[in-house]
Design a protein around this nucleic acid. Structure first.
Length: 703
DNA sequence: TGCTATTCA
């Protein structure tokens, strides 16, 4: 019970706070009323009163992400429960929650018990008992579904950015449709997409739960089935469209003029250079240029070319400020994008597709698009990820183009012909057709989907890919012989890790192995970005070698990571300085510490770790051996042996693998066998995160 | 022997 004084004080706080919040709300109301979606609210409310599914298409700037939940909140069917709005990215979930709270005149999240809007992302949850609208990442909603399969606290789930077609989105859509047709016939689902093609979504929600047997595309065809539409439903499926409403909202974009090349080019860097200088010398400032490239290497090459050429520019022209943008770039360098350029200077931003979805660059009037991107594709038969440069899709090209029209009318220069634009795939290939499915399959099993081939997929993956995933889960003992999830599998599914890494954790917790804390440190490194800062010059490499010398372990990357985490954790005074001195990414290490804390807490909760267990002081040789054996348990198929010709060849498949240059074992003396966590094809097949193992250990594991 | 598109739990 609260005392009278407390209640009184709270009232005063609330009333002064409320006054301020209400002023803000009223101010924001005017701009909300300008949004294209504002005048559609009655239609949208009516649609969801009569139907359980609403498919809403609308380009950026329509206001759908912020307005839809507010339109629905006071509906009779919504009164007693929450609305969930999923987002692909953490920053989007948090900033949308902040914005909607302001628009509603309510405090955000856990700041006040009266708050109506909150958010939930990994490592950061801000909700209160009174939360009515909750923005969360897709991963968090899937996590919630482990504990509450029926999503009983929600009356409505809004799935945003569905056109991105991540595995998580596809899983969520499948689960939602199952729920709606079984124990949550009252659940409302709003699916929002930036692409206008909603036909496959409509058919997905209309089809009967038990789907007709389709022949999924076969895997491993060169180039894949690239020109097909990614739609698992054929025209003659019986439709029950009565329960589905669709709605299209126009965006609020300025016009963008598109210009193509007359003839194809085989040197896009040269073509980009040419176009950038044409824009710079011809067009007035202000007006920044955003150039879409494939990766760090080409970005840095072009940056040098531009800067060299810009030196020869006379003072009649504005100056050029070239800024690279890619995910591995340190945070401070990324922030330069948001600063206004100095006087009489034009910003030229060279970016990967990070600027297509994740980062909005202000001030851009001109977009130069090379039409290419690096795309990851999992090869089931080889058990390897390839990361190759591929042509983008039309919707990707249109997305890039749209970046020129956010603040004013703009121009888009495509460094390919109009004819080749027309040959591009319409949409991005869904991730579920491009990735290792073991985690998705385990996720389904853990949520009670016994027959995963019967799961309602928006795009069914090839049966071969499903088979591989099931096989891998069997090998990890995550599934029993009958295909049902095992106790081990349930424990793995709860961990925020791939099944293989989860299995390593469980192995480390056994009394035989007894090295869980050490393994958690290593696994934390493996599940974040690379902890060593990139070096691009010969000189830098030598400097890094010296700076990190105390941490490097000749046994390989795993024990090197362990040494780095332990040293970082021991550093009490200035961790940022320590990281800089050792040429280790402070940002990456902060994530490592977050993951480490979370995994430790989860292991305690799962009784894998005793409450009072502490890190051992030294890691002796016997412990090192047990640590690597734990990794062998999860990665038994990712082992290669040294062959007489000096190459490493995999045990399963006899393929050649090279040690990646980022590994501490790169350029070292050859050993009888290596274990690795990633098998990636770029220029050739590389093993990443590599350690030395003995063949004897492997034999022991097989017994 | 020479290198990592991008998210997320």
């Amino acid at each position: 019970m609260e005392s009278g004084a407390n209640i009184k004080r709270k009232r005063e706080d609330d009333s002064t706070g409320r006054g301020h919040l209400q002023q803000k709300r009223i101010k924001l109301l005017e701009s909300r009323q300008q949004l294209p979606i504002w005048h559609r609210q009655k239609g949208i409310r009516d649609a969801l009163r009569e139907h359980n599914v609403l498919i809403l298409s609308g380009e950026t700037g329509s206001g759908k992400s912020t307005q839809i939940p507010q339109f629905l909140l006071d509906q009779p069917w919504c009164r007693s429960k929450k609305i969930a709005v999923t987002q692909p990215r953490r920053v989007a979930a948090i900033s949308l929650a902040r914005r909607v709270a302001e628009e509603m005149g309510t405090p955000l999240g856990s700041s006040s018990p009266a708050s109506k809007v909150g958010y939930s992302v990994r490592f950061d949850e801000s909700t209160s008992p009174s939360t009515r609208i909750k923005f969360l990442t897709e991963g968090m909603l899937l996590q919630e579904m482990l504990r509450d399969k029926a999503l009983s606290q929600y009356s409505c789930v809004v799935v945003d950015e569905v056109h991105e077609r991540s595995v998580n989105i596809d899983l969520i859509l499948g689960f939602l449709r199952q729920l709606q047709q079984t124990r949550r016939k009252d659940l409302k689902v709003v699916v929002m997409s930036a692409t206008a093609d909603v036909d496959s979504l409509r058919r997905f929600f209309a089809a009967k739960l038990s789907m007709p047997e389709e022949a999924p595309p076969t895997d491993e065809q060169p180039g894949g089935a690239d020109d097909e539409s990614w739609d698992g439903f054929s025209e003659n499926d019986q439709l029950e469209t009565t329960d589905i409403a669709t709605c299209h909202v126009e965006g609020r974009q300025y016009p963008v003029v598109t210009q193509y090349l007359d003839n194809p080019t085989d040197d896009v860097i040269e073509a980009a250079l040419h176009r950038i200088f044409q824009i710079h010398c011809k067009e007035p400032t202000p007006g920044d240029v955003l150039v879409f490239m494939t990766g760090q290497e080409t970005i840095q090459a072009l940056q040098k070319l531009i800067e060299d050429l810009a030196q020869g520019l006379t003072t009649d022209y504005p100056k050029m400020l070239v800024l690279p943008l890619f995910a591995a770039l340190p945070q401070a360098a990324q922030q330069l994008i948001f600063q206004p350029p100095p006087r009489n200077t034009r910003k030229i931003i060279l970016t990967t597709n990070i600027a297509e979805t994740s980062v909005t660059v202000p001030g851009v009037k001109y977009v130069v698009d090379t039409g290419k991107a690096k795309v990851k594709q999992f090869r089931n038969r080889l058990g390897l990820d390839s990361l190759l440069v591929k042509p983008i899709s039309q919707s990707s090209a249109d997305q890039r183009k749209g970046r020129a029209g956010r603040e004013a009318a703009g121009q888009c220069y495509r460094l390919y012909t109009e004819a080749s634009y027309k040959t591009l795939d319409k949409d991005n290939k869904p991730e579920i057709l491009r990735c290792d499915l073991s985690q998705a399959v385990l996720t389904m099993k853990a949520r009670g989907v016994d027959d995963v081939l019967d799961f309602p997929f928006l795009t069914p993956p090839p049966q071969e890919a499903m088979g591989k995933a099931l096989l891998q889960l069997l090998q990890l003992n995550a599934l029993a012989e009958d295909g049902k999830i095992s106790t081990v599998g349930r424990k793995i599914a709860r961990l925020p890790l791939t099944p293989a890494l989860g299995r390593v954790i469980l192995e480390a917790a056994t009394s035989d192995m007894d090295c869980l804390l050490e393994v958690i440190d290593i696994v934390a490194c493996l599940s974040v970005e690379h902890i060593f800062t990139a070096v691009d010059t010969e000189e830098g490499r030598e400097k890094a070698q010296i700076a990190r010398s105390q941490l490097l372990r000749r046994e390989g990357d795993h024990l090197t990571y362990l040494a780095a985490v332990q040293a970082y954790a021991e550093e009490q005074s200035d961790r940022r300085r320590w990281a800089n001195e050792h040429m280790i990414s402070h940002r990456a290490m902060q994530s490592v510490m977050d993951v480490r804390k979370q995994l430790t807490a989860q292991c305690r909760q799962a009784k894998l770790l005793l409450q009072d267990q502490e890190v051992r002081a030294a890691t002796d040789e016997a412990t090192q051996e047990r640590i690597l054996k734990c990794f062998l348990r999860g990665y038994s198929t990712k082992v290669a042996r040294l062959c007489p010709d000096g190459s490493y060849k995999t045990f399963t498949g006899n393929q050649t693998v090279a040690i990646h240059p980022s590994s501490v074992l790169f350029g070292r003396k050859k050993v009888e066998a290596i274990l690795y966590n990633q098998f990636v094809y770029t220029n050739k097949a590389y093993a990443r995160d590599v350690s030395v193992v003995q063949l004897r250990w492997l034999e022991e594991m097989l017994q």
